[in-house]
Design a protein around this nucleic acid. Structure first.
Lengths: 327, 327
DNA sequence: ATGAAAGCGCTAACAA
DNA sequence: TTGTTAGCGCTTTCAT
């Protein structure tokens, strides 16, 4: 490996001058600069970023901590984060926590030891003050972690309302909500939206917990129809949940959307691949990830942040599971 | 931040002793050790891995370079890599190249400057010798990069054969293969498998390029049936491609599997979420990722590698798009 | 068994 | 304008 020392010798100057050229800092004569640049080329020199990190106590890396990249909601988020990071010259480290507090702690330790410059968090196993103790730039993505941590989320409650309303607008009388995991912010908010509408409209409804997991959603749907065979509208807490429900409905011989209508949440690509397409409340997943990354980098670069809460609107995307449309 | 110096002072020993305790290397008296350990606890000291990296020229990081994490084939792979990395104490950096050579080059530079210990490559934009020049432990995953680079792939050709045979076994007479991107190893191999069977069986067939992209697959399927309305069996180069084909077929009013049978490739979760489930040649995606990570770490730790080529078997998973089964 | 000191590659005062 | 030097935090040889 060529080091700065080699370049300095080759160019007949001191390391300091090489450093100045590299960082365009301080005075360097035209000749010296030219000679250094030439030596860099000839020796194919690349500055060592570890040595730089040691001095600056920064690494040019940001971490993305999420529950599980194989959950289809996250890849697009991750992609967005990485795109922005690349554009600003940062590298992304990624960490799957499975929502396990132990894993999360181990990661935080490792990340700090590596001088990562900041963390985007899409999990929330820890108590909020644990996060403050980190003393690192943080952004909460799709989760709420505390007042003074910049947060990027969707209008989940409003989405819950709109989704529920959409079922009612299409003539559903007996609703079910297959809610996401308890304790997970967005799932709670969507439920709240659902509750608000059904109570206002005074319609019959039931709520079941199905996680964000297809198999579980399937089982819950079977049970649901055992208990309440007259359900005619399902608001699933995620598109994956909706897929599970559709599976069960198909096995039960229920026609969708004629007998039962189903709406999901998220707007993951899966939804439009399905036949019929899954009606859903679409989130701006990519944009959320990109904004989170930008907010993080702003903090890292000590630029001011205007708003701490960024709520993205959600959009109803009508497909075949609630209306007979051309997909 | 507490450094080793602080610990040394607090414990009344030298930095060298602290280092010895930390690394369990060299002689340290019981008393000294106890005192150091105590100080570490009290000061809540964490060794600085950047400083370590600088000395050792290793970082404890491995990179995963892939075309696009939001392609559903990759998240599970990534997850596997990360799980293994975590188990061995490594951190994973991930890089989306979009198969662009420029991006790939930029990443390689950045990664080398950061002393990443090795790279898992699921792309292949560069010429093989470019990779050798890197002089870093490498593993090729789902791609072939050269003789002396450990490689983890599926039996794509065999999979192509089995998939094609499955269609024939189910009575298909006019086959189409919606092949993956040209120049991409696995896509070529699957095609080869297809060719082998159709030519042996002397059945009528056609081949169209559909990439690994759902929208394109849809369009190609429309065109396909315009040209050849009597196609009754489609071997799609990936499950995503299959999803696109199914979409088109649904719009065209073709009944699946009665009039047209469809088989995909990959075994991504999407396939079983579909109604009807997508018949597919399943790859052991997670296991492949995990093995690739283990092979990489073996190289990093200078342990001997027995086999350079690891071909994973593929499995036919029959679902509703080729046979009328209960899903 | 332990410490002093040099060095990993780079940056930034401070002199000159 | 340039070089010398100390130092980022850690490891390791070499004395002692």
């Amino acid at each position: 490996m060529t080091t700065m020392k080699d370049v300095a010798k080759h160019a007949g100057v001191s390391k300091a001058t090489v450093s100045r050229v590299l960082n365009k800092k301080g005075y360097v004569s035209k000749e010296a600069e030219a000679s250094v640049l030439k030596s860099i080329k000839e020796l194919n020199y690349q500055p060592n970023s570890v040595a730089r990190s040691l001095y600056h106590k920064t690494s040019g890396m940001i971490a993305l901590v999420l529950p599980d990249i194989s959950n289809p909601f996250f890849p697009e988020l991750a992609r967005a984060v990485e795109d922005v990071a690349l554009a600003y010259g940062y590298t992304v480290v990624f960490c799957n926590t499975d929502e396990e507090i132990e894993k999360e702690k181990r990661y935080f330790e490792a990340l700090q030891q590596k001088y990562v410059d900041g963390i985007i968090l899409s999990t929330s196993s820890q108590a909020p003050d644990e996060y403050h103790k980190l003393d690192l730039p943080l952004v909460a993505l799709d989760r709420f972690l505390g007042e003074n941590i910049p947060t990027v989320v969707s209008e989940n409650k409003r989405g819950g309302e709109l989704a529920t309303q959409h079922l009612l607008d299409n003539g559903c009388k007996n609703l079910a909500h297959l809610r996401g995991p308890e304790g997970v912010g967005p799932a709670e908010d969507r439920l709240e939206g659902f509750r608000k509408v059904v109570s206002k409209e005074k319609c019959s409804y039931t709520v079941r917990t199905a996680g964000f997991d297809m198999e579980r959603a399937k089982q819950e749907t079977y049970k649901l129809f055992q208990d309440k065979p007259d359900i005619d509208g399902i608001f699933a807490g995620s598109d994956i949940t909706a897929a599970g429900a559709l599976h069960a409905l198909s096995t039960l011989g229920k026609k969708v959307p004629e007998e039962v209508k189903v709406i999901g949440f998220d707007g993951i690509p899966l939804g439009q691949m399905f036949v019929p397409g899954i009606t859903t409340m679409e989130q701006s997943i990519y944009d959320m990830g990109a904004l989170a990354a930008r907010l993080l980098i702003k903090q890292i670069e000590k630029k001011p942040i205007e708003n701490y809460i960024h709520e993205f609107p959600v959009h109803l995307v009508v497909r075949g599971t609630t209306e007979e449309v051309m997909t």
